[in-house]
Design a binder for these strands. Structure first.
Length: 282
DNA sequence: AAAGACACCTGGGAGC
DNA sequence: TGCTCCCAGGTGTCTT
């Protein structure tokens, strides 16, 4: 078992981060942005400090896996990539390895981005919804708009594997590899099924499973909220109750048969063939 | 337009 | 012990 399984920021982790940092920085004035390493997924604007200095964060929210810090003029867009984490420090604290960016509020509170693999991003946009990364995103998985009917309508004529399909942010945001595997297992749908072959009923089941899995993870995140952003805690994300992800060859928790692994879209894909088979027979 | 491959990046594990 | 190789993944971009 790889030990980095529980540190990937998927939607629930980003939501938990949001809830953790919000009380510390909402309505607080930015006094400085320190960029130690501008080369992340995209270069951080050299003008970022001038753009946000002395602006107050008057709204803080999440769109997919993007965190948006809205100021009176312009919005900071933060993405955690696959190894990023944000923490709050309420007193001066030396930067550690991979601490690439500090946003300092009221000359005291530090919002610090740590990101070993540097797949994350810190961007700025006058109107984030016109930003190319945000403008074309699909609906939130936990919204009413994301339903079985919506999913079914979108799958028509789409031949791609259903797992790749639900990981496509133009279809629905925030479903990464781990939760895609878990949701398909929960819905008893083979990840390699061509999207358009799913029935309305199966799309309903899948939409429900995605919501259920994400809600449970967010709920679990809430219980570890303090350690999540507290400077005294580990910067780690909560561990996940995974039923299939990274469990190749191990017995299925439901039927005791072995979990199998294939590659889809160059990503590890895990499923229980027996559970899917028994579902089809019913 | 859709789908697949590839790129970015690092830490950690396996194998020698 | 230390070196090299390989792998994980989110998501934009390029190619087919």
């Amino acid at each position: 078992m790889r030990n980095d399984v529980n540190i990937m920021p998927e939607l629930p982790e980003v939501e938990t981060t949001l809830r953790g940092i919000k009380p510390h920085i909402l309505n607080q004035k930015i006094s400085q942005v320190i960029v130690r390493r501008p080369k992340l997924r995209w270069p951080i604007k050299s003008t970022i400090n001038q753009l946000v200095k002395d602006k107050t964060v008057n709204n803080l929210y999440r769109v997919g896996k993007y965190l948006l810090l809205e100021t009176s003029h312009g919005t900071i867009i933060i993405h955690l990539g696959m190894s990023g984490s944000l923490r709050i420090f309420t007193q001066p604290t030396p930067a550690q390895k991979h601490d690439h960016v500090d946003i300092i509020f009221n000359h005291q509170t530090i919002l610090r981005l740590n990101d070993p693999r540097r797949f994350g991003a810190v961007l700025w946009a006058e109107d984030p919804f016109k930003h190319p990364l945000i403008a074309n995103l699909g609906p939130e998985p936990l919204s009413k708009q994301f339903s079985g009917n919506y999913l079914w309508a979108m799958t028509q004529k789409r031949k791609v594997a259903i797992k790749n399909f639900i990981m496509n942010s133009k279809i629905v945001v925030g479903v990464g590899n781990i939760y895609a595997n878990e949701a398909l297992f929960d819905a008893k749908i083979h990840p390699n099924r061509s999207a358009h072959t799913l029935s309305v009923q199966e799309c309903n089941a899948l939409a429900k499973s995605i919501k259920k899995i994400l809600r449970n993870a967010i709920k679990q995140g809430g219980t570890t909220l303090k350690d999540f952003v507290d400077s005294n805690g580990q910067p780690g994300y909560f561990s996940l109750q995974l039923k299939v992800y990274d469990r190749t060859g191990l017995p299925c928790f439901v039927c005791k048969n072995n979990i199998e692994e294939i590659r889809l879209g160059q990503r590890g894909t895990f499923y229980c063939p027996e559970c899917i088979l028994s579902s089809v027979m019913n």
